[in-house]
Simulated assay, not measured.
Amino acid sequence: MSSAAEPRPTTAETTAIVRGPGGAPRRRIGASPLEVFPLALSAKAFGWTATTAATDRILHRYVEHGGNFVDTADSYASGRSEIMIGTWMRNAGNRDELVLATKIGKSAEHPGLGAAAVQGAVEASLRRLGTDRIDLLYLHIDDESVEFDETLLAVDKLIRAGKVRCFGGSDHTGDRLFEARIASAQLGVAQMVALQNEYSLVRRKQYERDLARVAASQGLGVMPRFAIAHGFLSGKFRTRAAVRQSPRSRELAPHLTRGGLKVLGVLDELAVELDASVATVALAWLLTKPHVVAPVVSASEPEQVVDLAAAAELRLRRHHVTALDRVSAWA
């Protein structure tokens, strides 16, 4: 008989038990052959706020709930994030079951997107990850000091060699994405299939005013990063004192405004109605948007993964989406 002190499972945990892992259908990234769980697990915390032991548990919990899309970068924890993922994959023996994304351009060892840097960065990432290919390679910066032709030719060479399967942009304006598409067509090389830029209920304008039309016209799969605004949309940071105690205080502080708190208020109401967490509802809103494939979210503890993964199966009704659209229209 359970004791009174034993915590009850959340709705998300109960759903996972009933349906089993992998209940959410995969989504295809643009015109690529890559099919992914509708939530990408960011590895930004690995080697920073998440220890090796915590990282292993987070990755295991994510896969246990159907996840197959892991997102890292060669600059995260100076490459340690990639090493930790590679070690976990080797021990789990599950590389072929995963879609692995990494980013290049910001590392101290191979900065920028010149041909030599692209080649060197990818080779270094492959060694750290302990794999022979990167499924999705992102250009982590828009390196305007290098002609797009040089970068695109270098990436295409890696794709032809089988070391990279597909690639995308991660910090480009709409105009620059159009420029890249034209250059790719003229050169006859691989074109971008994915876009990763900031997009959330408290950061909408950059994507919706500029990048959404590009994603639509080029058929790009969109992976919103900072999808819960560094944790603000989890609802855990509603006071200045709470923000100051977080290692992400600098990123959280700009969201602690009257508008941000109003967004949290509507999320609170919907979370109660839908019997879900605030973060789950915020992510589910993103998944209703055209061309969004998988929001990118990090976890520093395995317990956080359950609510994040639950967004893949939470279905918002039209009035839920409308309420969130209205309260966040300023963002």
Rank of each mutant, 00 (worst) to 15 (best):
264 L>R: 05
264 L>A: 13
265 G>D: 14
265 G>C: 12
266 V>S: 11
266 V>P: 04
266 V>E: 13
267 L>Q: 06
267 L>S: 09
267 L>D: 06
267 L>P: 03
268 D>C: 09
268 D>E: 11
269 E>H: 06
270 L>I: 03
270 L>A: 09
271 A>I: 00
272 V>W: 00
272 V>E: 07
273 E>V: 10
274 L>E: 02
274 L>C: 04
274 L>H: 05
274 L>T: 01
275 D>Q: 14
275 D>S: 08
276 A>G: 13
276 A>R: 14
277 S>N: 13
277 S>Y: 01
277 S>K: 15
278 V>Y: 04
278 V>F: 06
278 V>N: 08
279 A>G: 14
279 A>H: 03
279 A>P: 02
280 T>D: 08
280 T>S: 15
280 T>N: 14
281 V>A: 14
281 V>M: 10
281 V>H: 03
282 A>L: 09
282 A>Y: 06
282 A>R: 13
284 A>Y: 04
285 W>M: 09
285 W>E: 06
285 W>C: 10
285 W>D: 05
286 L>N: 10
286 L>S: 11
286 L>W: 00
287 L>C: 03
287 L>G: 07
288 T>I: 10
288 T>N: 09
291 H>Q: 11
291 H>K: 12
293 V>D: 01
294 A>Q: 01
294 A>T: 01
295 P>C: 01
295 P>I: 02
295 P>Y: 00
297 V>P: 07
298 S>F: 05
298 S>Q: 12
298 S>R: 14
298 S>E: 12
299 A>N: 15
299 A>F: 01
300 S>F: 01
300 S>D: 10
300 S>I: 02
300 S>M: 07
301 E>W: 00
301 E>S: 14
303 E>D: 08
303 E>Q: 11
304 Q>I: 07
304 Q>P: 00
305 V>A: 02
305 V>F: 04
306 V>Q: 03
306 V>P: 04
307 D>F: 04
308 L>F: 12
309 A>C: 15
309 A>Q: 05
310 A>G: 03
310 A>R: 14
310 A>W: 00
310 A>Q: 09
310 A>P: 04
311 A>N: 08
311 A>H: 06
311 A>C: 13
312 A>V: 07
313 E>M: 10
313 E>R: 10
315 R>G: 02
315 R>F: 00
315 R>Y: 00
316 L>G: 02
316 L>S: 12
317 R>A: 13
317 R>Q: 13
317 R>F: 01
318 R>H: 12
318 R>V: 15
319 H>D: 08
319 H>N: 12
320 H>R: 05
320 H>N: 13
321 V>R: 02
321 V>I: 15
321 V>K: 07
321 V>D: 00
321 V>G: 12
322 T>R: 12
322 T>F: 05
322 T>A: 15
323 A>E: 06
324 L>P: 00
325 D>C: 08
325 D>R: 03
326 R>D: 11
326 R>L: 10
